[in-house]
Structures are given as structure tokens and as C-alpha cells.
Design a protein around this nucleic acid. Structure first.
Ligand SMILES: NC(=O)c1ccc[n+]([C@@H]2O[C@H](COP(=O)([O-])OP(=O)(O)OC[C@H]3O[C@@H](n4cnc5c(N)ncnc54)[C@H](O)[C@@H]3O)[C@@H](O)[C@H]2O)c1
Ligand SMILES: NC(=O)c1ccc[n+]([C@@H]2O[C@H](COP(=O)([O-])OP(=O)(O)OC[C@H]3O[C@@H](n4cnc5c(N)ncnc54)[C@H](O)[C@@H]3O)[C@@H](O)[C@H]2O)c1
Lengths: 235, 235
DNA sequence: ACGATTTTGTTCTCGCGTTCACAAACTCTT
DNA sequence: AAGAGTTTGTGAACGCGAGAACAAAATCGT
């Protein structure tokens, strides 16, 4: 009776794809990479999964399982060679090549991103800054100068740009996104607080600072037992 | 034989806590809030779970289940009253009160955050900007001027600050974090690419743009079939 | 008044991710 | 060379979250 509906039929036997790395693992690989770099900088040549796990802030079993998806790079009884593992993870992520990035919307946030040196050091090369505000076009930020959005197609094509960063107001985000996609960009990082729709072949990730603060506020409210709900009082 | 080890004993019967909202749900509440605000701005007074789900970019069953953790705010056969639901979610998150925020590290990113109007409109009030660089102290950014880190304790105490944002270089992040905690801040948003350790009663969230780009790069590499691994060639 | 229609709230099932636990594989000591 | 010690890689159990499905509850039409 509980199961009156149609049955689901046979279980879809999913052959473990040759290279099917779980999404949760992918998100941790950069963390491991950072931990390995830190160890390498301290001239540590070998590290156990426990050492690495501490550096990365995760459980050691999880770390070992994550690494096992990439291959068998450790030595039982010894641990992992720091530089070797670092290279393997970098290769897996795709950091053995440089990636060209365009930033669209060079306002407060766009300026900060354009000036950030931490991208280049991780293999991301900001090749163009775009803005629709004609007053801003031509202005220079760091090594680059701001180009018009109309040059997008040419820039993407000639610069092999595959990653686009959206730092425009929310109202413009979808339009900018569409233009990026049309120009051939297939990965997008969105800072605007807006829901963007993209074709299947395009990957999109969002960073929303307001949401982060709201999540903190939720827990903060629980901690302080502020169940009265009304307090505040900044006139 | 497979199960030779010690058994785990009785199952921990977890009474569904009166207010045990799953973390995944908490993370989506701000998204629903934004969707509701957008609908309200368009003078929509009532919305079904399907309408809302589309606006928020989630599955409608998931949305209904999420909302059911908060209470019974819908009407069967009708849907949800937009403004009423919006208030209930805001109250649940804790946005019926203002939250004071301090930003530490007023460099590229800190400036952008300080100038961002989107925080205030969501109930977050930046009450102080702190930097260790004496040359910067006194400089004004928007309405505020930059204070010395030494004033942290006084600022936190007198301003009821509960949320701290770290936008310093990674090397300074842990020290700054410790000082925030010592001053009484119990929620921290960290932009520095560093692993921070905090006491149990402190919540910490991180935003790491490099990690986001690396995740995009991983998928991008798969898409372009760039399995050769060696290419790049920026001299 | 009552059946048809709509839509919520909730139950159930499935799959993913986390963690424990341990055999296999390696090094080190004697 | 053999045993003791160490650490990886992985099988298995478990818990959480996603989504399908449906009964309950409301409105609408006649
Ligand atoms: N500044 C922050 O710290 C911060 C924090 C969180 C979220 N955000 C979000 O990031 C985005 C940018 O924020 P900001 O503070 O830099 O805003 P901003 O107003 O300072 O900058 C926006 C820039 O985008 C440009 N622009 C507008 N429409 C455009 C279009 N169609 N094509 C190209 N460029 C266009 C504008 O000319 C401007 O230079 C916003 O969506 C904001 O909500 C910013
Ligand atoms: N700028 C970006 O777009 C961006 C992107 C991703 C990550 N980040 C990260 O955000 C952080 C800040 O980046 P940024 O570009 O603004 O750097 P920045 O160098 O421009 O600014 C850092 C600021 O922190 C201050 N500072 C240093 N030590 C301090 C201390 N102990 N106490 C208080 N203040 C201190 C400095 O005086 C400076 O004003 C870095 O960790 C960076 O990796 C920045």
C-alpha cells in the first residue's frame, strides 16, 4: 500500500567511471594543494595523511579516500612525497596550464579582483577587464586597461579565454552572462546576487557574501538566545 | 569475518530537536528571501511553492520541505503569502535586528567591502574598519574612517559587534582571528586563504576565490579534453 | 452542499559523502 | 631474514539530504 506507485525498475548500475571524481572531493583538492605548498615552503619533503589532514583541516580518512580517486601516489608505511603529490593534484585540477580570465564590471569589487596578485600565482591570468561604462573604458587598473564590452568576442577568441568573472550589479548579470556564453566562455564565477541561467555545457559558480553573513547571523541568533526577535534599535 | 571489530552499540536516537533546522536548509533560506523580495518588488502577493522554487532556482519539493522546518506558513490550494513568508524567514535568520560588523584589513578587498551598499540593505551594519598599517589609520572610506587594531576591544564592546570580517593577508589571518575572538566576536567571515582555528563557540565561514576558480578550471579541463596535461606556454 | 481542482506538508526511498576499521604493503630493527 | 611498527588504500556502515509521491486541506464551480 505504501508502495502503490510505479516501481523504479532495475537499479542503474553505474560503472565507476574511469575518472569519476566526486564533486565534494574536487572542492577539497585546492585545499590540499595549499596545504602541500605550505609544507613544501617549510622544506617538508614527506608527509603522512595525518600530517596533511591537519594542515588541510580535514579528517585523515577523508583525505586518503579523496587522494585515492586520483591514483596511488602514497607509500604505505611512509606517507606522501610532498612535491610529487602537489604536482599530481595540480595536474588533476588543471593548473599545469595557465587559464585566461576576463572580469566584467570594474567597480568596487572588480577593482579589488583586478589588483589581486593571488590569482596569477595559482595559474589564473587576468587578460581583460570589461565595463559598459564608457567613462571607465580606457582607465587603467594595474597592468591592464579597461575595455569596452563590445570587444568581448574579439578578446575571448584571441586570448583563449575560458573563464569569466561577473562583478556587475545584479540587474546586469544575466545579460553579461549571456554575452560571455555567446562569446565562448564556458566557466563563470558570479559575484552578483542574482540567479543566472546558462546552457548545460557552461559551468557556473556563485559567491554571495550577503548569504554568508546571513548564515552567520542565523547561528549567532541561536547562540545569543535572541529569541525575542525584536531588539536592534539603531535609530 | 568482515565485521570482526567492536560493534557500535545502540543507535543514538536523536529526538528531532524542536528547532533543528538542517544546515543545508539554513544556507538556502537567504536565497528564498531574495526570491521573495524580488516577487514583492513586482507586487506579487501570493506565490506557490513552484513559483518560488523557480525564482530561487531549486526543486519545489525541496523548497516545501525547507519551509516546513520553519513552521506551517502556507495555505493548501493557494500557496504562500509573499510578504508574510518573507517576514517569517527574515525572523528565522535573525534579520529583524541589525547586526554590527567590523572589517579588518582595509586593502583592496577591504575597501570594496566597506563601500558595498548591499550589506546595509540586508541588515548588516559595518560599524568599524580596522587596519594595522598606521599610515592607513585615519583615512576615511565612505562614511567611516579606519581605526587602529588596538581599538578593537573598545569597538566590539561599545558597538555590540558580533561579526568580524577578515580581509588581511593570509599570514596575519590567525592573529587577527585570535584578537577578534578575544574581543568577543563570535562569528567570523574569512577571505584570507588560510586555515583558521577558533574555539567551539565561534562560527567561522570562509570565502576563497582561488578555490572557486580552481574548481571551475578542473571542470573546464575535462570539457576541453585537455588531457595532454602540458600546454600553456606563457613564457 | 458537494465534487473537482489546486497545492501544501510529509513520508518514503535512494544516493552521496563521511567515517570507522582493517588487511595489505612498506620500512626499520635486531 | 623475520618480526615489530607504521601508514596507505579501501570495504562497509551510517547519516544526511534530494526528490518522487501522495494524503490532507484549502478553494472554486455548479
Ligand atoms: N563590493 C563588494 O564588496 C561586494 C560584496 C558582495 C557582492 N557584491 C556584488 O558584486 C557586484 C559588484 O559590486 P560593486 O560594489 O563592485 O558594484 P559597483 O557598482 O561598484 O560596480 C559595478 C560595475 O559594473 C559596471 N556595469 C554595470 N552594468 C554593466 C554591464 N551591463 N556590463 C558591464 N559592466 C557593467 C558598472 O559600470 C560598474 O563599474 C554587485 O552585484 C554586488 O552586489 C559586491
Ligand atoms: N583582492 C582580492 O580580490 C582578493 C581575492 C581573493 C582573496 N583575497 C584575500 O583577501 C585578503 C586581502 O586581500 P587584499 O587584496 O585586500 O590585500 P591587501 O594587501 O590589499 O590588503 C591587506 C590589508 O590588511 C592590512 N593588514 C595586514 N596585516 C594586518 C594585521 N595584522 N591586522 C590588521 N590589518 C592588517 C594591510 O595593512 C592591508 O591594508 C588576502 O588574504 C587575499 O589573499 C583577496
Amino acid at each position: 500500500m505504501t508502495n502503490a506507485g510505479g516501481r523504479k525498475g532495475g537499479r542503474a548500475r553505474v560503472e565507476r567511471a574511469e575518472r569519476g571524481i566526486p564533486e565534494a572531493t574536487v572542492a577539497r583538492l585546492p585545499v590540499y594543494l595549499r596545504a602541500l605548498t605550505a609544507l613544501s615552503d617549510r622544506d617538508v619533503t614527506t608527509a603522512s595523511s595525518e600530517d596533511l589532514a591537519v594542515s588541510a583541516g580535514v579528517n585523515s580518512a577523508k583525505l586518503r579516500k579523496d587522494l585515492s580517486y586520483l591514483g596511488t601516489y602514497g607509500t604505505r608505511g611512509v606517507g606522501y612525497d610532498v612535491d610529487y603529490l602537489r604536482y599530481q593534484i595540480a595536474r588533476e585540477i588543471g593548473l599545469t596550464q595557465d587559464w585566461s580570465v576576463v572580469i566584467v564590471g570594474i567597480g568596487n569589487l572588480g577593482h579589488a579582483l583586478a589588483n589581486y596578485s593571488g590569482f596569477a600565482s595559482r595559474g589564473f591570468r587576468v587578460t581583460a577587464l570589461l565595463d559598459s561604462d564608457e567613462a571607465r573604458v580606457g582607465e587603467s587598473v594595474g597592468d591592464l586597461h579597461i575595455s569596452s564590452l563590445d570587444d568581448l568576442d574579439e578578446i575571448v577568441r584571441s586570448g583563449s579565454v575560458s573563464i569569466g568573472v561577473i562583478a556587475t550589479p545584479a540587474a546586469a548579470a544575466q545579460i553579461v552572462c549571456d554575452r560571455l556564453v555567446a562569446a565562448g566562455v564556458s566557466s563563470i564565477l558570479n559575484f552578483a546576487p542574482a540567479l543566472l541561467s546558462v546552457p548545460d555545457h557552461v559551468d557556473i559558480r556563485k559567491v554571495d557574501l550577503s548569504i554568508e553573513l546571513q548564515i552567520l547571523a542565523f547561528h549567532e541568533q541561536r547562540k545569543t538566545g535572541a529569541l525575542t526577535g525584536i531588539k536592534a534599535g539603531t535609530g
